[in-house]
Design a protein around this nucleic acid. Structure first.
Lengths: 340, 340
DNA sequence: ACGAAAAATGTATCCGGATACATTTTTACG
DNA sequence: CGTAAAAATGTATCCGGATACATTTTTCGT
């Protein structure tokens, strides 16, 4: 591979001129510029960006920590990130973490070893809590998106999960449901906690007592939704509606309900969250909360780049809009259920 | 950020010793090693890997060209890649290309500018066809996986799509189907062509004439499956089975069929390809071809790293196994249909 | 045509770790 | 104890582009 100096020699100029001809062409006379460009073409010269980045101390890489790549919501978020990053001259280093703090720390260290400039974390965990100092110069440049930490000085991009869950719960209440089960995400997740809070807000406003036994554990997989639904319908006082914290679990639940001969929504309503592509192809099509997934990604990338390039004073907290999408998996309670 | 020399000074040794203490500890005496290590700890020194990589000429990055990140099959492939790469000390630079040759070329050029060491292409297109010279030193180090080129000297990882499509078609024929529609992937895709060939193989062996009008265009999205199904059932001589070239299209098709009051599989059978997670949660659960998606990714990464590290003589062609997974979306033809 | 300012170009050095080669220290054996 | 071999360590240089600063060339007004 030819380099700087070979080009300079062939063009009969100095390396500085070669560098300038590429970086700041306006500083080089037209004649010289052409000499340089033709030498570059003749040698098929390509600048070694590793050298340039090494010198500048900027890698142009962003580490993205994703609990599960093989998840439709995250896939959309990543898609949005990739596009935004590419547009601004950055690259995405994708890291599948399985939500394991050790892996997250390992990958985040790529910033320390100058393999990446910053980190986008899609889970509510700061790999270096002691350094959660936002704009501080020693801190890990990080942006927290989707599932975010509560008390953090790190920039965040999130949804008002509480309001969204409340909206969904209100929708179910309006349909006459009084016993609404919730299939939750992983324990200790602020996202799960906030959605639960929204659910309780709506219940409280409607004057309905909160029943902890209606809460089911889940892990955002189809299987966990199926399992939860199975357990719910075997109870004597089974719910008339199931609010799942993501669409995969909702679709798993629907499958299980149908398997037991229950009709959705006639016998039991099911709601999801995320509005993945499959939601409208579900049978019945899923009532859910649409999130601007790609925008989560692109916003997170923009914030991180702003942070890296010093355009951020204090950590912004961006909240993106949601939308309640009512389809056919939710419906009015049957008389039998409502008379109780 | 502290460097090499600061550590050397604090430890009272030379930079070479510092470097050796980290790279080849056995060459450094225990006493010296400890001095170095404690200096490293005291200064919180982290080697600047950009410098090391710059010097070695190896970036440790692999560019992955994916037509669509937000696709469950590719997401699994990427997941497998990421794990394999991480295990071998490489990172994945994820690039969403939308199947656009220009974007693919742009990203592939990252290898020329030393931002990455090699490329994994998940689509049948070589960004630098002139350089398709396999082991040649001037060639772009590339591995082609999933959808692969026919006449290439590049290493490939693929499925015997022809045999898989044939197996699925035979399954449908055994159930009595004689008019089997095919919802295809993008035109000009070897993958689509091979699957079609397998379909024709099976028809021919069964002595059934091939009817081109049973082929429907598609693009691997839920919507295109729905559209294709809509067109098929409006025909006078509509098929008794629809073989979709991926699960998303199959699920889209099923939705459309049900919408028209058709029962699957009683009135019409539907088969998919890929066995994504949703396939078994579809209503009815989808008959499909299971592919080892993660293994596509890990194998591609292994091959590329072998290629980069000079362990490959001539380009290997790896074929991974498939499995026909029969669920409930396919069934025997009804009498009405078979008597024709 | 002269001189000052502006434009263009060149020189030398830096970034930080790796390593070939040189040098010093230790080991071990007669 | 002496010396050769082995082990440990140090010195100097390289990788390739960026750039501060120095130097040369051009422009332009008078």
């Amino acid at each position: 591979m030819s380099n700087n100096r070979e080009v300079a020699k062939l063009a009969g100029v100095s390396v500085a001129t070669v560098s300038r001809a590429l970086q700041k062409p306006e500083l080089v006379s037209l004649k010289t510029r052409n000499k340089v460009l033709s030498a570059i073409k003749k040698l098929d010269y390509r600048p070694n960006l590793m050298a340039a980045k090494f010198r500048s101390g900027k890698t142009g890489n962003l580490v993205v920590l994703v609990p599960t790549v093989a998840n439709l919501f995250f896939a959309r978020v990543i898609s949005g990130m990739q596009e935004a990053a590419h547009q601004k001259g950055y690259s995405i280093l994708l890291c599948n973490t399985f939500g394991d703090p050790e892996m997250e720390e390992g990958y985040a260290k790529m910033v320390h070893t100058c393999q990446a400039d910053g980190v986008i974390q899609l889970r509510a965990y700061n790999p270096f809590p002691a350094q959660d100092t936002g704009g501080s110069s020693t801190a890990l440049p990080m942006v927290n998106a989707c599932e975010v930490l509560d008390n953090t000085t790190v920039p965040t991009v999130t949804l008002d999960n509480r309001a969204a869950a409340r909206a969904m719960t209100e929708h179910l209440l309006q349909l006459g449901h009084r016993r609404i089960a919730v299939v939750m995400g992983p324990k200790n997740s602020p996202l799960t906690r906030d959605r639960l809070a929204g659910y309780r807000d709506a219940l409280q406003e409607a004057g309905i007592a909160f029943d902890e036994s209606l809460l089911c554990p889940g892990d955002f997989t189809l299987h966990s939704g199926r399992k939860a639904a199975g357990e719910l319908i075997e109870r004597k006082d089974s719910p008339t509606a199931i609010f799942c914290e993501n669409d995969e679990m909702a679709m798993g639940a629907i499958q299980r309900l149908k398997q037991s001969g229950l009709r959705v929504p006639e016998d039991i309503s099911v709601a999801g969250f995320d509005d993945i592509a499959f939601a409208q192809f579900s049978d019945p099509p899923l009532t859910t909360i649409a999130q601007p997934a790609e925008e989560f990604g692109s916003t997170a990338v923009s914030l991180l780049i702003d942070l890296l390039e010093g355009r951020i004073k204090k950590a912004p907290k961006v909240t993106l809009p949601f939308e309640l999408v009512v389809r056919s998996s939710t419906g009015p309670t049957s008389n039998k259920e409502t008379v109780q």
